[in-house]
Amino acid sequence: MEYIKKVPYLLQALLNICLFLLALALSVLLISETWYIMQVVYNSFFVKVDSYYEMLGELLIFFMYFEFIALIIKYFKSNFHFPLRYFIYIGITAITRLIIIDHDQAVSTFWWSVSILIMISALFIANKKKSMEEH
């Protein structure tokens, strides 16, 4: 019966190890994305760039890697807790990238924009609730 009480601690340790490995993998991808962006910028001085939307999409992917790494760091710093607002930031960035890359249909772009507005409203409510708890 004593070993059952140790199961949550074992699972928490496994989760922490997996998140650490994920952070390492995301860091490698972030460095790779940085290198790719630097190459595109360097080449754009000598060759005409075909699509600025693609470059902007790559920058947003860069920020998504950055946000996920920041989320994992915050998880460890806040005693194994994921703050909701970080997920909202990641969602807003992901949908913004989607709108920039795939904006062919006006109706779908409108609905994606509405979803960003909803997430910003949720972020406002979450921050307002947090500031009310501090006072």
Rank of each mutant, 00 (worst) to 15 (best):
E2Y: 14
I4S: 06
I4L: 15
K5C: 03
K5P: 01
K5W: 14
K6P: 05
K6W: 12
K6I: 10
V7Q: 14
V7C: 11
V7W: 06
P8S: 08
P8L: 10
Y9A: 12
A13K: 15
L15N: 14
N16P: 02
N16V: 04
I17H: 05
L21N: 06
L22G: 02
A23D: 05
A23F: 08
L26F: 14
V28W: 14
L29Q: 12
L29Y: 09
L30G: 03
I31M: 06
I31Y: 13
E33G: 01
M38L: 13
M38T: 15
V40S: 08
V40L: 05
V40D: 01
F45L: 14
F46D: 08
V47R: 14
K48T: 10
K48P: 04
D50E: 14
Y52S: 07
E54N: 10
E58K: 15
L59E: 00
L60H: 02
I61R: 00
F66S: 11
F66L: 12
E67G: 01
E67W: 00
I69V: 15
I72L: 08
I73P: 03
K74C: 06
Y75E: 01
Y75R: 05
Y75P: 00
Y75N: 01
F76R: 15
F76T: 13
K77C: 07
H81D: 05
P83V: 04
P83M: 10
L84H: 10
R85C: 07
R85W: 12
R85E: 09
I88N: 03
I88W: 05
I90F: 12
I92S: 02
T93I: 10
T96N: 07
T96K: 02
T96R: 13
I99K: 04
I99D: 00
I99C: 04
D102P: 04
H103M: 06
A106N: 06
S108I: 14
W111V: 07
V114C: 04
I118W: 06
M119R: 01
S121Y: 13
F124S: 05
I125E: 03
K129E: 05
K130S: 06
K130W: 13
S131E: 14
S131W: 11
E133W: 11
E134V: 09
H135L: 03
H135I: 10
H135C: 10
H135M: 04
